[in-house]
């Protein structure tokens, strides 16, 4: 039985889809058969970030309404084995997702995959609720910025109350926090919330910190999840995050300000 993991945030533009693409790709790189599912009906992006937008023939909604088989709708990644994606519909309206329909598709996927990564739409409406409803685990993506932290707090509340796991006796969704677009330099200057600040407020376990990095934009331009850029700090941070997700002990990297040449020469003076 596969594990269902939702990538969510409440606020838009914090890196949910970037995270879903890299998280799924990294799980596949680690040898786990993984599928990324886009729940953002009407505003699909995941196919674009994974570089398979021209190969979408059928989508999640087609499978729900029996207009195609699951096998027809699953798109196999051309770069690595074990990685698949299921696109959202761009033409249907967002109410075409139903609890029963989503449950049916996910129940087929858990039989065939080790991990099902659900990319949630922004907001707290139906699409976002359905993306999280059947989750076993959640990754809440947060930027070090007040409105993002506020919205993440709201999502954590929903994950604790509005999911199938939460409705079961004694069940709960394991919630992890991922901080993205972190800039240690600005934290040192006192311009940005620190990891500790965010942890104090949200009080959930931290699974990774992805630094602000130019390679994230290059990656989305190219339609390649950033984990495929081995030299990218963001890519490495996502690989680390997946190691932690799989239960390994990895110290956080890229969270200290790199000392400049002068700083290194006169270490400690500044």
């Amino acid at each position: 039985m596969g594990k269902i993991v939702v990538v969510t945030s409440g606020k838009g533009g914090v890196g949910k889809t970037t995270t879903a693409a890299s998280f799924a790709a990294a799980l596949a790189l680690r040898g786990h058969k993984t599928v990324a599912v886009d729940f953002d009906v009407g505003l699909r992006n995941l196919d674009l970030l994974m570089g398979c937008e021209r190969r979408v023939v059928y989508d999640l909604v087609n499978v729900i309404y029996g207009e195609s088989t699951l096998k027809q709708a699953l798109i196999r990644d051309k770069r690595i084995e074990n990685l698949y994606m299921l696109a959202a519909s761009q033409t249907r309206d967002k109410d075409s997702l139903t609890v029963e329909g989503v449950e049916e598709v996910l129940s087929m996927l858990v039989k065939d995959f080790d991990y099902i990564v659900c990319d949630s739409p922004a907001g707290i409406e139906k699409g976002a609720q359905l993306a999280m409803y059947f989750a076993d685990e959640a990754v809440v993506v947060t930027n070090p910025e007040i409105s993002s932290v506020q919205d993440s707090d709201r999502m954590i509340g929903l994950l604790d109350s509005k999911t199938k796991k939460a409705a079961e006796q004694g069940g709960s969704v394991k919630v992890n926090m991922l901080i993205t677009r972190y800039d240690p330099k600005r934290v040192t200057k006192g311009e940005m919330l620190s990891i500790e600040d965010i942890q104090d407020i949200l009080a959930i376990p931290l699974i990774g910190v992805v630094p602000e990095s130019p390679s994230v934009l290059h990656a989305s331009n190219a339609g390649t999840p950033v984990v495929f850029f081995e030299k990218s700090e963001a890519g490495q941070a996502y690989m680390d995050m997946v190691s932690r997700f799989l239960g390994e002990d990895k110290p956080m990297r890229f969270i200290q300000q790199e000392k400049g040449l002068l700083g290194r020469l006169f270490g400690g003076v500044s």
Binding site: L48, E53, R54, Q90, T91, L217, H218, S220, N221, A222, G223
Partner: peptide, 28 residues
Amino acid sequence: DSATTARERLQIVVAHQRSKRLGESAFV
């Protein structure tokens, strides 16, 4: 450069999205 790649990919996606003459679902 990667921005050029992004522009080319977008042109294709957006052309589909905007086609009014032939509705988007007709395209699909």
